[in-house]
């Protein structure tokens, strides 16, 4: 899933200081799971912004809504009726995709409440870690199911580099060395031999290379 975290409250408050009435839109997908932008967080943010505003002697009117999915026009249509002309500004509590969809659909100025951090999973309650680098050309079959692109701090394809010690990466004693994990897993699978093959340079044109990538599934495209 996409993992995001909320921007500092004062930063959001500063950005909406001109507005009298704001619509705060959550999303029921990834950001609900990672406790950053679901229905509950929408309520908390609305209350906090009203309180902060009250300290300045002015009032702030908030409207709360949580879309089933902000990254889908269909679900934004469902909220069109509450985006009335008296709403000065929309705060999206979705990932960067949701913010853009909302900004595209409505005329109001739309701002993000979250920083979109990573594609990852839950490590333990309240802790999420990156697991996919969105390189567009998955190599997990070669690396024991451990992604060197995003879990190795240097995205090395023929690792580990000389900074791996006691299973940790040179960047921090709390960061596992991805290549140590790959080595251990491949050893366990009896496939260490495969790591002796020199992995050729990667085709990064399939990854972020300037300009949005697009996926088309011909059989369902209209």
């Amino acid at each position: 899933m996409i993992v995001a975290e909320q921007k500092p409250l004062v930063e959001i408050a500063e950005r909406i200081k001109e507005a009298n009435k704001v619509l705060i839109v959550g999303c029921s997908m990834c950001v609900t799971v990672c406790l950053a932008g679901g229905e509950k967080e929408v309520g908390v943010l609305a209350a906090a912004l009203r309180l902060l505003r009250a300290q300045t002697g002015r009032s702030l009117e908030t409207v709360e809504y949580t879309a089933t999915r902000q990254c889908d026009q269909e679900y934004l249509e469902a909220m069109a009726k509450i985006v009335t002309p008296d709403i000065d500004l929309i705060i999206s509590m979705a990932c960067g995709v949701g913010v853009q969809y909302v900004a595209e659909r409505f005329d109001q100025w739309t701002i993000p409440a979250l920083n979109t951090k990573l594609i990852g999973g839950t490590l333990e309650h309240g802790v999420w870690e990156e697991r996919c680098g969105l390189c567009g050309d998955c190599v997990l079959h070669k690396t024991g199911g451990i992604c060197p692109i995003i879990r190795c701090s240097k995205s090395i394809l023929n690792g580990p580099c000389g900074g791996s010690q006691n299973g940790k990466c040179e960047i921090s004693p709390t960061t596992p060395c991805a290549w140590q994990l790959i080595y251990d897993k491949m050893a366990k699978l009896g496939k260490l031999e495969a790591l002796l093959t020199i992995e050729p340079v990667k085709d990064w044109s399939k990854a972020r290379d300037g300009g949005p990538r697009r996926v088309v599934k011909e059989d369902v495209a209209l």
């Binding site: 995205s155 090395i156 992995e199 340079v201």
Partner: peptide, 14 residues
């Protein structure tokens, strides 16, 4: 922002 377009072994090969 780091680059690491290619790694050291790929550099040797290059």
């Amino acid at each position: 922002k780091n680059v690491f377009d290619i790694d050291s072994i790929q550099l040797i090969q290059t």
